[in-house]
Amino acid sequence: MHELSIAQSILDIIVSNVPEDQLHYVRTVSLKVGKSSGIVPESLEFCFMAITAETNLCQARLNIEKIPFVIHCHTCGLEQENEVGSALCASCGSVDTTILSGTEMQFSEIELDEVA
């Protein structure tokens, strides 16, 4: 259940980037989470809600963009997506591949409503 400590890291980033008197205007916190990052987006959303409930960030919600796991095969040149996080080329069976995306856990932006 490391989503809880990841939610805490997200909270820390928000608090260090938004002035304290504007925290209650935070509405959406956007993240990019790879499908093979080992993070369950729904758990992360739940944990974030749990730790921000009854705080000045209680109206903030996570907006998680799920990034597909994509590899590039150096043997046959095929760029391909797979759901299982495999480094194996589905076309030629080579393992000489590079991961292009799908393992990231990236913060992207904070949206605030009606800043005074």
Binding site: I6, S9, I13, Q106, F107, S108, I110, L112, E114
Partner: peptide, 15 residues
């Protein structure tokens, strides 16, 4: 609506 862009790893502090 205003937006603050923060392109960084979530676990940057740990890293």
């Amino acid at each position: 609506m205003s937006v603050i862009t923060i392109e960084r790893k979530v676990l940057e502090k740990n890293d």
